[in-house]
Design a protein around this nucleic acid. Structure first.
Lengths: 131, 131
DNA sequence: CTGTATCCGTGCCGATACTG
DNA sequence: CAGTATCGGCACGGATACAG
């Protein structure tokens, strides 16, 4: 089954969409952009996703070169998922998607209860949320 | 059933994705960005889409405020689909998606047979494709 | 902790036929 | 020309149970 997933659309836009449009992929990317994460961490951060789907989405993104899976052969095996350079290149794209999404929400008078965008650049450690 | 479609995700990114990630939406938008199009025109431009799906995607985008449907009560009724301002705001977003998609294709050694991006700003009428 | 296997509902989208 | 109606495949993702 693996290897068949790289049958991606020819058109670049559709290719990009296909790769990031998984139900949880944007959210996973958001967390992974922040730094390497363990499976259990991600699971804890996203209580609504089932473990099966989480791994599934991670596998796809791994196959598409967005995230990297590293196994540390320590006493209890540790597995970390981190963003690749290619994956990091998605950050600005997701940001523009987010910006447009907010604009769209406003224009449809459908303000989400989440005030700010979940996909955004990491904030400086000490920076307070100005604005 | 209509009206239920505006139940969009809370997160702006997901909202944006949901709205543009239809099978043919990026392509339709590409053509519609270029100017108002009739249904038959769009159908001719995209031979691989069935009429039912074409109308379906148009209806959704209309409901989401991306395109506008105008009926001209002329002798044979004419119907035109054009991009709204909100819809036009997607052009740069689709462009960045496209740019990333190309980069992704290269990095995966999977060069598409379509040389350039299908979603791009309109070209000046007389301009030759100078790369 | 990390991961697989199975089952199954639902939504998207394609084919085809029909209508004003 | 523009649009609706019906049927059906299939991929996606959610629930749950099991395994190294």
């Amino acid at each position: 089954m693996a290897g068949a997933t790289n049958r991606l659309p020819k058109l670049p836009v559709e290719r990009a969409l296909k790769v990031i449009a998984g139900r949880w992929k944007p959210v996973i990317l958001y967390y992974v952009f922040d730094g390497p994460k363990r499976l259990s961490e991600l699971k804890r951060m996203m209580p609504d996703i089932t473990q099966k789907v989480l791994i599934q989405q991670l596998r796809e993104m791994e196959e598409h070169g967005l995230v990297r899976r590293q196994i540390f052969a320590e006493v209890p095996v540790r597995v970390e998922y981190s963003a690749t350079v290619l994956g990091l290149g998605l950050e600005p794209v997701l940001l523009s998607l987010c910006a447009w999404g907010q604009r769209h929400a406003k224009e449809q008078n459908d303000i989400p209860d989440v005030a700010d965008c979940i996909v955004r650049p990491r904030r400086a450690p000490g920076a307070t949320a100005a604005t």
